[in-house]
Design a protein around this nucleic acid. Structure first.
Lengths: 121, 121
DNA sequence: GTAGAAGTTAACATCAGTGTCAGGTTCAAG
DNA sequence: CTTGAACCTGACACTGATGTTAACTTCTAC
């Protein structure tokens, strides 16, 4: 599929998809005329990339992580090095703390919303 | 307490604390010489602000939200307007989606770490 | 073959919180 | 007093993903 369709199906802008390629997160074959041609699997990959970005990982780390991830159709193509494992464990702990904080903020918002709903029924 | 202590106790830089004040998120009385003097309660407030920032809220919305929050020692000093409630509900839903995504990324990291740990025991 | 939609590269802008530096003032202890 | 740590304001830089624009090319359908 071409970039427009991938953008539409993932909700990620074309600009970002090209950026992902530049950062080594996403590859695409090219048509004879030079246009990008993505495999079906790219949809899942882009969604993962977005999630990892949302989780606060930087593109360089994502680039090292991606080949170690379990593909939809099989095992990973690489095994994470001990150094990468250490880094990822730190990221995981950070994500855990972030989830806890988010739950906290969510509760605060809920409280404010509930309080206001009682007054403005 | 003065700004240095508040920074130390919250883990937030002095630069950021001054920025929070500029954005109307945090107030401080001043010593005769013009230095900021924070009440004990500021520690909690700064922690909340940090959490809301981490949750992706912008300073302007946080500024409108803060007076509607339940204080440590009592009810809120203001009630959220219907407009603000609508906005906060949208933020809450966004946070819910973010938490789900984070859990997903966390699972991916865990899987990569586990797989590598089996190979590098 | 031609029109228009969709794609290409490259460069510059934006956002919002934070880092950092400069030049000056205040505070607390000796 | 004086000295050094702590604080003040103001300005500029950065980060890193994404938006935007420009000038040009390719694809698709008639």
């Amino acid at each position: 599929m071409r970039i427009g369709e991938l953008a539409r199906r993932t909700g990620v802008s074309e600009r970002s998809l090209r950026y992902y390629e530049q950062q080594g997160l996403l590859t695409a074959s090219r048509t004879p005329g030079g246009q990008r041609d993505y495999p079906e699997q790219a949809v899942d990959r882009v969604v993962r990339i977005q999630e990892l970005f949302a989780a606060g990982l930087h593109s360089r780390r994502i680039a090292r992580l991606l080949p170690c991830m379990r593909d939809a159709d099989g095992g990973p193509s690489e095994i994470a090095t001990p150094l990468l494992v250490t880094e990822l464990a730190a990221e995981r702990d950070r994500i855990d703390r972030m989830i806890a904080q988010l739950a906290n903020s969510r509760a605060v918002l809920d409280d404010v919303i509930d309080t206001a709903s009682e007054r403005h029924p």
